[in-house]
Nucleic acid binder design. Structure first.
Lengths: 206, 206
DNA sequence: ATTCCAATAGGTAAAAACACCTAAGGAAGG
DNA sequence: CCTTCCTTAGGTGTTTTTACCTATTGGAAT
């Protein structure tokens, strides 16, 4: 369960110690909570998916590059906003990063104020993402309490079938369908079909 | 009303005549329908929002740049996939274009096969967008047939209110609410509340 | 002025959904 | 073996929705 009160963290992954230190100082100068890593692997080892914040990621690093780490995060379903930082302007790399869902792609040397602007924007994006995902998770938890049969009935109800048709479809008595429906309404804590449909649809495209 | 059977068009906007001709030949060599423009203004004057296809857009042009045209298209709610083409690698420009929703950002000189790959991908994206928007438009047309009062009732039903509560909310008789509901069901061509909710929600986030 | 339609409302009746009750068969686990 | 849970099903009754019918008011268009 993620915690909204915990402080957001700006993760910094860069193999250059001087850059790490300077970024850390810059971030802490505006009271941002920063954690630095010297390589992609150590970040992957320390980061847990529920942690809120954003990531400042150097593109060019030995062993695992920033692009590879970005790919790894997205493959792992981690949607943390990532600001890529690079010293060597490379358009294809920037385009690839943006297509992979990077929040921004910034060249060194960068303006401190502009970087902080982007960091704040990324943190705000993360906050919004997190709110949405919390709602989705609570919703998913509700549906987890349903049995397989009840899920079948939910989907048939949401599709707009009356109980009589649902009974025929499942080969059971209309009475039993009503029992299932009552149990579903209680478990999902809804009082009308309209609410049930909304709850189900909020999960479909999430 | 957009027409799915009409041929998709690859629009080319570039101030360099040699580039226009070469792109046009390349596109027509794979049986793509191409239309070329020498500046952003002439494209804007000729393009109509229902036309399907994609846009190959040169970044650097006199008067109105490709970036400005991209901004103008997005401001106008035109979601045609745009492939930006530039001769001078510029990371901030690429990032800005991608943030503005460009489909891709390609540097000259480009590989002909790769460009065609991207064009085909853009056309496929446009086809998907268009299918989705057609559905949305049909849906919107249905709701346009509803009166203001009926829209109020729809939203209260979708929110999960029973007729009795809706009547109290609107200060009218439960009987009248039922009349409205019946008219709504007929106009929207749905037979259950679940279908009404789905139809309404498909418009909410579109 | 007349016509058309939206909004209002009542009557009647059938269908559907929802709320309670009981209860049996089967599978899983302690 | 016993308990627990899922699934099944019937009974009874209330509430809600839906489908027909008629009918008045008021505004907008012709």
């Amino acid at each position: 369960m993620s915690n909204d009160t915990e402080q957001a963290t700006v993760f910094v992954v860069d193999d250059d110690e001087a850059m790490r230190d300077s970024l850390c100082l810059l971030l802490e100068s505006v009271n941002l909570n920063a954690r630095v890593f010297s390589c992609a692997q150590s970040f992957l080892g320390a980061f847990e998916r529920h942690q809120s914040g954003c990531l400042l990621l150097d593109v060019r690093m030995p062993d695992m590059s920033g692009m590879t780490l970005l790919d790894a995060l997205r493959s792992g379903g981690i949607v943390l906003p990532v600001i890529m930082i690079t010293g060597h302007g490379d358009v294809p790399m920037a385009v690839r990063a943006m297509k992979q869902g990077a929040f921004d792609f910034i060249q060194k040397p960068f303006n401190a104020r502009e970087l902080l602007d982007r960091v704040h924007a990324a943190l705000e994006q993360d906050r919004k993402n997190r709110l949405q995902r919390n709602k989705t998770e609570q919703c998913r938890a509700l549906f987890m309490t349903l049995t397989d049969r009840e899920m079948e009935v939910v989907d048939l109800v949401v599709a707009g079938n009356p109980s009589k048709i649902i009974a025929r479809t499942l080969g059971i008595s209309p009475k039993t369908v009503d029992i299932h429906r009552a149990n579903i309404m209680r478990k999902l804590d809804v009082r009308t079909v309209a609410e049930m449909v909304q709850l189900r649809l909020s999960l479909r495209d999430a």
